[in-house]
Amino acid sequence: MLVGITILLVFQLIGEVAAYFLGGFVPGPVIGMAMIAVVLKLTGGVKTLEPAHQRTLETSRSILANLGILFVPAGVGIIQHLDLIRDRGFALLAIVLLSTVITLTVTVWVFILVKRLSGGYADE
């Protein structure tokens, strides 16, 4: 498992460095994940790299199997503050709904603007 986690962290580090030089346009972990996927795909048939592939896959499966543990603290925090949710639940719900509508509206308008500026959208 140590080899697998090391490989994953090395690719994340490479992704972070690439993201730094790209100006943060794409998050480092996303770049690292894409890079490790490409490397694993391209070197999948190489027999000398098979143990490293296997360890990386085992480590990834182990991390994904225990991913739910990361959500336990958030759930405990919600349960600890049920009184706040009870007292301000309507306001929270209203804020969530309003912010969702605003986000969707802005996303649509930005999409339309970009399509028009790129010449891919013509009004009829």
Rank of each mutant, 00 (worst) to 15 (best):
K47M: 07
Y20L: 14
I78N: 01
K47D: 14
L92R: 01
V46W: 15
V76W: 06
K41L: 00
I69Q: 14
V26L: 08
V26K: 10
I79R: 12
G75S: 10
A52D: 06
L22D: 15
V38G: 08
G75F: 12
G32M: 06
T59G: 00
V17G: 04
L42M: 11
A94F: 11
A18R: 08
A37P: 11
M35K: 09
Q54V: 04
E58Y: 06
A91C: 03
L42A: 13
R86D: 10
K41F: 00
G32I: 01
F21I: 10
D83S: 00
I85P: 04
A94C: 03
P27W: 06
H53E: 05
G44K: 04
I36E: 12
T48E: 15
L13H: 02
E16Y: 07
G15P: 03
G28F: 08
A19W: 03
L70F: 12
I78Q: 01
S62M: 15
L64K: 15
N66L: 04
L57V: 00
L22M: 15
F90N: 12
T43L: 15
R55D: 14
V76C: 06
D83C: 02
I78T: 00
G45M: 03
R86F: 08
V72S: 06
A18H: 05
I63P: 13
A91Q: 13
A91D: 15
A94S: 10
